[in-house]
Computed example of a mutant assay.
Amino acid sequence: MLRSRFRRLLRVGLRLGAALVLALLLAELAVRVAGLRPPPRSPRADHSLIWNVSEDELPGVGHMLKAGGAVTRVYPGHGDEGDRTVTYVINELGYREDPFPEAKPAGSYRIVMLGDSITYGTGIALEQTMAHQLRPLLAERFPGAQIEVLNCGVPGTNTGQQAAFLRRRVMALEPDMVLLCSTIVDASGYGIHRGPGHEPPEAARWVRALGLTSGLVEAESLPPAVQRTMAVRRVSALADLAAHQAFRHLYGRSLLINYRDCWKPDSPGVRSVRRGLGVIKTLAERRGMRLHVAMFPFLAGLDGDYPFTAEAGRMSNMCTELAVPFTHLLPALQGYRPGQLQAHAHDRHPNGLANALAARYLAEAIAPGIAADLGR
């Protein structure tokens, strides 16, 4: 009796196992035939152009760009899109810009753009950055005026660092206007201590435990969990697609939780942003510079379900308290899918189109201040 029941259960188990294997094989075949492999991974973060600065030398700055440095990165294509090469060149003054004189030319109206990797232009050519796309828009609006827009963005910096950078380096450029390009990451990073016992979101712990990444990684030294996952992903299109989708969901959830945590009222991050804004405001008043803050949105939920509305509201309120003009650039990008505006499928930095849309919107916002300064 027991033996016959065991045999029946064994037969059922074998049939279910065979059906599962067949289903997986058919799914693997379908994924391969449909060409559903995820896009290749974008280049890993490059730090060869970053120069870490000591607190004794330039307090609060943290790091800068290496003057005279240059590096080329290849962004793999996907589908009908071919590979794309981006060359990052840092001029002799330490900015990702064409060469320009440190002393402001006579008769020039000089605008400097402070910010992080979005302002710097990670993943895109120099001419696609927002600073460069602002130039023709302002030239058209103010014919005959000599208006410079200089890209002073440094990847991986927050508002506090940008305030220190303005004070200790950028002020030498004699700007007439400071455009601070704020982002959701400004309440995290260098100099912001979130206290003992802070744990990363559970989603981030799952990403590490499962060895998930944004794409196939070619590297000699990888954590064991990533090595195991990579071995399976290289031979199975289905596993590669499943791991990619799992990473997108878990990592996106992790970012959402982390950034919202950083922007909680009176959090260390919010206090740091407020201090940085105060420093920039004071510098602008002392030197007679115009100041305008623009917040570039996180590329998600642009269809009306934007996840960081409350956080952008806190930035707006801080600017209002300081009597600093503020522009949220979200309306400029609404109606587009995030994938249309990303520098790469695995990289949420804005592409040339996103910067063009933002520049057009921002030009309208800053034009009245420029007109007043130019006496027009």
Rank of each mutant, 00 (worst) to 15 (best):
F6A: 06
L58H: 11
L241H: 13
A354D: 04
I124E: 05
P40W: 08
P331T: 03
R287G: 14
A323I: 01
D80L: 12
T87C: 07
Y336S: 05
G301R: 00
L353K: 11
D347E: 06
I50S: 10
G252W: 00
R3E: 10
P331G: 05
R314T: 03
A30N: 06
L299C: 04
S182L: 10
R275P: 06
A365T: 15
N158H: 13
P38M: 11
P201C: 14
R274N: 10
V270D: 01
M318F: 13
A354F: 00
V71H: 06
G313W: 02
T327P: 04
H47R: 15
L179E: 00
L374N: 13
D83T: 02
G107S: 06
G375N: 03
L10A: 07
I124F: 04
I366Y: 01
L24T: 02
A365M: 01
R360E: 14
P143G: 08
A70V: 14
M318Q: 09
A372S: 12
P99V: 08
L362C: 03
G62C: 11
H198D: 14
A34F: 15
R274W: 02
G211I: 01
N151I: 15
A131S: 15
K264V: 10
L330C: 02
R96T: 13
A219L: 04
W51V: 12
P38H: 03
A23V: 12
R253H: 13
A312T: 03
V232R: 15
V154Q: 01
Y306T: 00
N351A: 09
Y259I: 02
P99H: 08
R41V: 11
R5E: 15
